[in-house]
Write a protein that binds this DNA or RNA. Structure first.
Lengths: 152, 152
DNA sequence: TATTGTTATACTCTATAACTATA
DNA sequence: TATAGTTATAGAGTATAACAATA
């Protein structure tokens, strides 16, 4: 039960842990995500930026970094790269001349939608291992766990 | 639904993704794990080593690195640190003089058990957000996802 | 004074390559 | 020749601190 059949090593103290299994399962999905991104010459972190700007055009760099919980300084190289790929653009803000408003280019919108569909298709592979309704149940219980943190 | 009430930013393309929710939920549990480890002056990575050696005394450094899927070279500093804490010890292997056999010290066993209980207690906080039997079902579905990768 | 974007810097984690001593 | 442990090194990823322009 607690033994991994592949190498005969006993993972007992890790296997029984829900956090450990969540991590392993998340890694399975991350591999799909990473691979889909890699095929399009991007990283998961950069896709996250595109996804945020796609649904929230006009955000500043700082707002995006806050939304993704990374430091402002990390955004500079990231936006530079996305701008180099011509999928995002910095527009000088009118109200506040210190900041840029971020927008996806036409190419960027199509790129983001294409990548999103690709990841979605990749994830669907695992639906075969779930019974009817289990996916919704899983999403629901994960939501409860995520919400549970907030009341800490 | 797809909007985070906290900052008014629309995470739609990420929120709908099962992989993203798995990551968020995993981070909730990881915070508990990390905090419990930090209070004992250790890291999650080092605890994983202790957990493996606890259940598999006598493994070589290379075997542990393979079990945890990290490079051999990363083990050196890690075992150095655990040895410095007097929770693990390298014993010269008799059969193969190139390698060490790893064992927990008496202190190391107690330390590992204590830490394990601490993490377990921390995780139990989230059981309140699950119905009867849901935890077992969740472990089961996560196992199916983890196993699904192998047949890729 | 505070904030935006930026740069320089450092720190962690991990991977690669090369070395030594064994096998 | 291949493997175990080691070392040096380099690459991500991310955080901190400081600066100029602007608020």
């Amino acid at each position: 039960m607690n033994t991994d059949a592949q190498n005969g090593i006993d993972y007992a103290m890790l296997q029984s842990r829900l956090g450990y299994k969540l991590r392993r399962a998340q890694m399975v999905y991350f591999d799909v995500f990473f691979e889909a991104c890699a095929q399009e010459g991007i990283t998961p972190g950069l896709f996250s930026i595109l996804a945020i700007v796609y649904h929230n055009p006009g955000l500043t760099q700082s707002a995006v970094s806050a939304a993704l919980d990374v430091d402002r300084s990390a955004m500079v190289a990231a936006i530079d790269k996305l701008e180099g790929m011509e999928v995002i653009e910095r527009r000088k803000s009118k109200n506040d001349r210190r900041s840029y408003a971020l927008y996806l280019t036409k190419k960027g919108k199509a790129f983001t939608e294409h990548l999103n569909q690709k990841v979605e298709a990749g994830e669907q592979r695992f639906d075969a291992f779930m019974q009817e309704g289990e996916r919704e149940w899983l999403l629901d219980i994960l939501d409860r766990i995520i919400e549970a943190r907030k009341g800490s």
